[in-house]
């Protein structure tokens, strides 16, 4: 059996310049991702993936999502198929995949020049 490890995907959501001001919540993104993954790959892949949002910055619309190493490509593929969030056209753009949170946070600071938010333990 393949050794399962974690992968952390740094992604951003691109909105149209004239999009209505909307707060994209963590729950909304997770629901869209679950739906897209479920539609494309079915129940088995979806429950195996072990999706978890590690960080989410709703102001800059940047986040880090955790997934297992086997389902990494499936998650990125399902991200590509999300075209709308609450009727507003969006583009999910994955920037970097890493094996540790520390490295992903380092890339966050490097790419976006913003400080990632503290982890929410809710």
């Amino acid at each position: 059996m393949k050794n399962i490890r974690q992968r952390y995907i740094l992604f951003e959501i691109i909105l149209p310049p004239k999009a209505p001001a909307m707060e994209i919540s963590q729950e909304l993104i997770m629901k869209a991702l679950w739906d897209s993954l479920f539609t494309l790959f079915g129940q088995k892949k979806t429950f195996n993936a072990g999706l978890w949002m590690i960080r989410w910055d709703s102001m800059h619309r940047i986040g880090i999502i955790r997934v297992d190493n086997v389902s990494k490509l499936e998650l990125i593929a399902s991200m590509a198929f999300i075209r709308k969030l609450e009727g507003v056209p969006v583009i999910f753009h994955s920037r970097k995949t890493s094996g540790t949170v520390k490295k992903t946070l380092k890339r966050w600071r490097e790419f976006f020049k913003t400080e990632p938010p503290k982890r929410d333990f809710k």
């Binding site: 490509l73 593929a77 991200m79 590509a80 075209r83 999910f92 994955s94």
Partner: peptide, 17 residues
């Protein structure tokens, strides 16, 4: 009009799907 996707996403779709 709003259907652009990056090369990483396209690669992932071709590999996984």
């Amino acid at each position: 009009l709003w259907s652009l996707s990056g090369p990483r996403e396209i690669s992932a779709v071709l590999t996984s799907l």
